Simulated assay, not measured.
Amino acid sequence: MTSSSIYNCTVVHKRFIPKEHHFKYDVFALFLDLSELSNIEKNIHLFSYNKFNLISFHDSDHGPRDGSSVIDWVKKNLIENKIDTENIKIKLLCYPRIFGYVFNPLSVFYIYNADEKLISILYEVKNTFGEQHTYVFKIEGDENLLQHNCEKKFHVSPFIEMECKYFFRVLKPSEKISIIIDQYKKNEKLLYASQVGKKTELNNKELFKSYIKNPMMTFKIIIAIHFEAFKLWMKGIKFIKKKLKIKNNLTFEN
């Protein structure tokens, strides 16, 4: 038994201005205790760590994205934000590679202390230009529903301007997982995005079942992103040119 698991989820996006647009699709995400990756590889034949398999996880897909330790990267950034890293547990909600390919629009790191209390969340956001920005939040209190907000600092969609704010509503992972992001331009709601799912055990049987339901999931995600962008363009929504070129930024939020 491990503390890692699978979440079978539905992703929903709804755009409200200047024109309405929405889509939804089913996915499965892995909720990985990063200290268990080698053990998971030994016990789940379909899964490999830093090697090719039907389903795999690679350090180079997250954090510094240079193949070095994601755990060390998380600890370094927590220390810089004055968050205690002694005996912490780092869990990551992400899409795995399928047949060696993955694109994660959003990956979420959940950081727990030795008492299993959630003390920090890192939202790792990627765009299709090969860039990444991570928003780091410190968690205080013990509420089940976490709410926080920040200014948008990273160009994601070429159809949404930079002058926006994010409002996050996140349930602590349990039998259900829920991540909701509302994006506002000035005081007007522009976008609603959510990923909601149910937990199942991470083992050979359940991983294969999740794969069979979404056999080409990671390819579907990147195709869907471009297809939905084409539909936005067809609706006449303004194309926003990306002004900044970054590779891997990180900000500490209040």
Rank of each mutant, 00 (worst) to 15 (best):
I111V: 15
A193I: 06
D33C: 10
E151M: 04
I222V: 15
H22L: 02
V74I: 15
S60T: 12
S210E: 08
F129S: 10
S107E: 12
I177G: 01
L30H: 08
H226L: 07
A29L: 11
V156F: 00
S38I: 08
R15H: 08
D72R: 09
K89T: 15
A224E: 11
D115Y: 09
H58A: 09
G67E: 05
V136G: 03
R65D: 10
K42S: 15
E188K: 11
E131Q: 14
H155P: 00
I223Q: 02
N8A: 10
A193K: 06
L145G: 03
F239P: 02
K238E: 13
D26W: 02
K186G: 06
P173E: 06
E151P: 03
I111S: 08
V27R: 00
D26F: 11
E161Q: 08
Y184S: 10
N8F: 02
I40D: 04
T2A: 04
H58K: 15
E175W: 08
L93W: 02
S4G: 07
N249R: 05
N53C: 12
I79L: 12
T134P: 00
M217D: 10
Y166T: 03
E253Y: 04
I88M: 01
K91H: 07
H226A: 02
R97Q: 12
S60N: 11
C9T: 12
E188S: 14
I222D: 04
S38K: 15
E140W: 06
Q147W: 01
D142P: 06
I90M: 08
S69I: 11
F168Y: 15
F99W: 14
P173H: 04
E143R: 13
Y135K: 12
M234C: 14
S60G: 01
L171S: 07
S5R: 01
H45N: 13
G130N: 14
I88P: 00
V196M: 01
Q195P: 07
I237D: 09
L191E: 00
Y184N: 05
E228T: 07
N144G: 05
V156L: 00
I221W: 02
I90H: 01
E140G: 15
F230K: 04
K231N: 07
F28C: 14
E163Q: 15
I139Y: 06
F109H: 11
S5T: 10
V170F: 10
I40A: 10
L78P: 04
L106V: 15
K176G: 07
E163P: 02
G130Y: 00
E140L: 14
H45M: 12
F208T: 12
N81P: 04
K82T: 13
I98P: 01
